[in-house]
Design a protein around this nucleic acid. Sequence first.
DNA 1: ACGTTGAGATTGCCG
DNA 2: CGGCAATGTCAACGT
Lengths: 219, 219
Amino acid sequence: MRLLVADCEVEYSGRLGARLARAPRLILMKADGSIAIHSDAKAYKPLNWMTPPCTITEQETEIVATNRAGETLRIRVFDVLADHEVVLGEDPGLEKEGVEAELQALIAARVAALRDGLELVRREYPTDIGPVDLLCRDGEGRSVAIEIKRVGEITGVEQLLRYRERLDRDPALAPTRAMLVAQTIKPQARVFAESRDVECIEVDLDVLRGIDDGSLRLF
Amino acid sequence: MRLLVADCEVEYSGRLGARLARAPRLILMKADGSIAIHSDAKAYKPLNWMTPPCTITEQETEIVATNRAGETLRIRVFDVLADHEVVLGEDPGLEKEGVEAELQALIAARVAALRDGLELVRREYPTDIGPVDLLCRDGEGRSVAIEIKRVGEITGVEQLLRYRERLDRDPALAPTRAMLVAQTIKPQARVFAESRDVECIEVDLDVLRGIDDGSLRLF
DNA sequence: ACGTTGAGATTGCCG
DNA sequence: CGGCAATGTCAACGT
């Protein structure tokens, strides 16, 4: 990884055009072949960048990165303020917990906690427009499509409606119910969902973990 | 801006939990109060970070960042490999062109180039579920809702359908036409749009610029 | 390679 | 501050 601090001006031409007037900035060149230009603001987002795979050529006063799509990032270097090379080696990587995958696993393990009589048929039930998070059956034998989100918004409801429409084409499944399950559901999403006959359920991750352990009960 | 290269281990606890095992990494502390931990991969995305506003406290072997929401980022420093402070000053900022806003402005200036007889009523016409990009009238006096995208996808069509449904509740506007205008429209979006009676138009940014100049004509 | 979806999305706008 | 939509969204995963 190379940490180059330089007075520079930058031009990006690709999906859009972007220009940075001359100023001192950090140019971060990683071992993965990426290049990113940071100012002292904008938090973790660089002002400009190029993601790998791209080819970087460097001359006296100019660094140019180009990718396969023909996008170019051109850095004109006026003055080098610092230039450090550091060797980090491979990173052991990031371990995450609490993302949608975990939420889905917890809910899948106890769909009956959402509504009495629910039984899981399949996780990631495939349709030709993408997988339904959970496909279940209710106590009356009706199919129930469940979409799981951390935050329930209108786009999530529409995603679910697309799936329901698909599932309803299968006589073995139609007519299906649809449920949006999320840690929080935004008011407008709830209104929209209910206008389309989509049930909304908010769940608490900690309570679900408890249910999964068998140490807590909702009922 | 401080460039700290250190053998470290990191723990984030907030919207999710995340852990980084001990390894050498770049810890980037910006003047805006942000902190980001980079490995030599993942392009411009840090492994962990904290965006301002947050309070950062540093002791001998530990850096802890906390924000108002109670999220914490804890960095345990085992060994400092490099530690550089650089002063960049304020950045003149990024100038962009070719984003949706410009596309919208160009199209708004010449809606008649999309379909003969179209006239602009308003840009960003407000509804209670969000603004319609362009509201127009066609030659027969019918209202036309236009959604503009760089890339036309299914979600864009659905956004437009929500608006049309909303506009159709207003007797002064109903029944409305709907048009998706984009630089490129994905095949699935086109099929879906036409099944819902939404017109699709692909436009070329350069041609639009020419029209705006008056130096080119589509007809 | 393409399509779909998730993301600690972030960021900016407007009410 | 909350809701909404754009982002050069990026990145992961499945076909």
